[in-house]
Write a protein that binds this DNA or RNA. Structure first.
Lengths: 218, 218
DNA sequence: ATTCGCATTCTTGTATACAAGGTTGTTGAC
DNA sequence: GTCAACAACCTTGTATACAAGAATGCGAAT
């Protein structure tokens, strides 16, 4: 067995929360989930514990665990922190990055570009993630890298939504190129600022998107 | 019951790891721990899962869980990230902080001072933590606050060691005052820089301490 | 004597049984 | 008709039983 069943289950439940099958405040019933995944309550409980730790669900003692979708404020806060973490990674990377890694970034960017032209948002999304992952790695700080990846994963579904906005992809590509340029020049301040803006704008776009949905619904 | 037994056990095990009872690479036997805490394996397993999530122990499938003390490099990396997170909190706080909170910081500082003069390192330690906690809160970003508290908690035992260095306490106090001053002036850059330096120096001091211990042992 | 193979044993991972607290619905009194 | 108290049920939390993989030790063969 490559991994425990509870890990697999945790990922599956995560997916179900992300895609909206389990909405906000939905109570995750242990026996129901155990039934769904054809296992006993034990691995389900372990999975739920993991999700509670990562903040995706809330654990109310003797009551159960409930889906805790972040509200617009929490989301903005998370994007704000993400922007700062990535900006830090970029600042560190500006001093430490190798020519080879610059090449990797350019390659990833290239793949992003082809995805944009093929209108393959799914592919763009993956390659975009890859681009950022390289940046984290090149910060030269393994702990920072892990923290960035963790938060990236957490924000994944919301970033996804936001990318569908018209014209955002092309703009995003330009920003990537600016980031690479700053890194190439070893300009820590510019790299940092470019990355911060690039990430922060996603939070803002998301916010606008939410607001427009809200007014449309009202 | 105010909290689950697994939570209590997790904290106890954490404590035992922090105070060195369980050294690096020590295997945490489930039945042994269950015996020690007079419970069944179930809550112990849940506690170990939590510790694995927080990175304090490593979980090797079908092998067991092992204490994973961070090495000097990992520790430096963590302090580096902590410095950046706190610097960010300070930058945000410089714009958002209230007069009342400034007063709270000054009070906390005052209590630190009395602790220093009473040579009560334990008290100094607690009050120092409080000072930083106020800073996190005043960032106005709840998510950032939580992340800071999490990392603060993780680095707690190492910070503690470092504070014992001669003259560090007085120096640390001066830095606190500079931080408050910068915040009072609403100077985001200076507040941010002061906090970054204040935290980063802890990592460096710790590094020196480790190095001296190493050469002494050799 | 050393090493390979097999079997025993020990530990983790999962399922089930039991305990304890929480929820809900019904019944009776006002 | 409404509200409160009680009881039955349901869910979580914990303990124990069972299954399966990994470590270990013994023995045989080279």
């Amino acid at each position: 067995m490559e991994q425990k069943r509870s890990d697999i289950i945790a990922n599956q439940i995560e997916e179900l929360i992300f895609d909206g099958t389990f909405g906000d405040e939905y109570r995750l019933d242990e026996v129901q989930l155990a039934d769904r995944f054809a296992v006993s309550r034990t691995p389900v409980r372990e999975a739920l514990l993991r999700l509670a730790q990562s903040g995706l669900v809330e654990h109310r003692p003797r009551r159960g665990v409930f889906v805790k979708q972040p509200g617009p404020i929490a989301l903005m806060e998370m994007f704000e922190v993400m922007a700062e973490l990535e900006a830090t990674a970029a600042r560190f990377a500006a001093h430490r990055i190798t020519d080879e890694a610059i090449g990797e970034l350019k390659d990833a960017n290239q793949r992003c570009n082809t995805a944009v032209e093929a209108q393959d948002t799914e592919k763009y999304y993956r390659e975009n993630e890859q681009f950022h992952a390289i940046l984290y790695r090149e910060s030269g700080n393994g702990f920072l890298e892990q923290e960035c990846l963790r938060l990236q994963r957490r924000l994944q579904p919301f970033r996804r939504t936001q990318l569908r906005l018209r014209g955002r992809l092309k703009q995003s590509m330009k920003e990537h190129e600016q980031i690479v340029l700053a890194l190439e020049n070893g300009d820590a301040v510019q790299a940092s600022d470019a990355v911060r803006a690039h990430v922060a704008v996603q939070g803002e776009k998301f916010h606008h998107l939410m607001a427009s949905l809200k007014t449309a619904a009202a």
